[in-house]
Design a protein around this nucleic acid. Sequence first.
DNA 1: TCTTCCATGTAAATGGTTACATGATTTG
DNA 2: CAAATCATGTAACCATTTACATGGAAGA
Lengths: 181, 181
Amino acid sequence: MALEHAILVALSERAGTGYELARGFDRDGGDFWQATHQQIYRVLNRMADGGWVAAEHVAQTGRPDKKVYTVTGAGRVELARWLAEPAQPTHPRDDLAVKIRGASFGDPAAVLTEVERHLAHHAERLAGYEAVERREFADPTALTGHRLHQYLTLRGSITTERGLIGWYDEVRTALRRDSAT
Amino acid sequence: MALEHAILVALSERAGTGYELARGFDRDGGDFWQATHQQIYRVLNRMADGGWVAAEHVAQTGRPDKKVYTVTGAGRVELARWLAEPAQPTHPRDDLAVKIRGASFGDPAAVLTEVERHLAHHAERLAGYEAVERREFADPTALTGHRLHQYLTLRGSITTERGLIGWYDEVRTALRRDSAT
DNA sequence: TCTTCCATGTAAATGGTTACATGATTTG
DNA sequence: CAAATCATGTAACCATTTACATGGAAGA
């Protein structure tokens, strides 16, 4: 699974706490993974046991103490090994697509309402990604190495959101037309 | 979770065996869900216990016997209930995106090779979907109800594939340019 | 002869979600 | 005064994957 490796990438970019990782893997450009804090704490402990990451305990005043995690040499070796390994293409699983497909076995108007709600949600997410793009990556042609890879991941999020928005819009138009007859 | 409900949609369209469901939820238009046969058999048993589906045992000659599943009245009620319920927007988790993001912590050339492989794979999947679109849905403006919903799901698969292909192509160009310097 | 297709399943392990728990500080 | 933020965790449960198992028929 890739959660360990997504954490290794995030911590390679910048050391951080489990809490920060759970808040979103957001480091300039598309939160590229997500998981609950419970799972992240568990996985971080396992990774620390395996020697991929090391925790530095930091006492704070007025706030709970925290553990700042860093990738170790063994962690860097593991990440490089995993990066060279082939990934299998994944096929998205989308609840809303199942609902659209099955709309006529229930109330198509309720499905239409859901599509509209998701459309608004994704439009907002897209706007957020585009703002990051303008702010952080003004001149993409000049990018190289790590910054380029960050930018490309952000571009992936933007492309995905635009695709979803375009599709939901098509679905909305078609369902409205159909319910009008 | 939506696997039960994806199965209810698939079996509402046409009765079938666990084996057929595992082969792909493919019923004219985008395999809209996927799961291993092990999981499907388990879930089908649970659904049969809960009374959402009923199995008819069919003996065959020269082949193993099979169980053809049909949605029951209770299953139809449950599906309609679930369809009216809001879905939470899901955020895709893509291993290859993590690899692109982390490319500089390993060998970027290996990641580029993976991107090219995935590009070819998705181009092939897209061609398959487009062939179904031409063959089955020649006149989309005339579609209504269930056929329209099937078509819209297929359109979603096509949009997703085109988005991925566009993005992978952008990544390929950028990584090639960067490695040439 | 080897592989693939049909068709179903069990068992073990791993991955992920939900509920519960704590406690000070800051913001509305 | 209530809610959200910071920060970590345990326990129970549910979902998913991987490995193992069977066995005849058809095709390369």
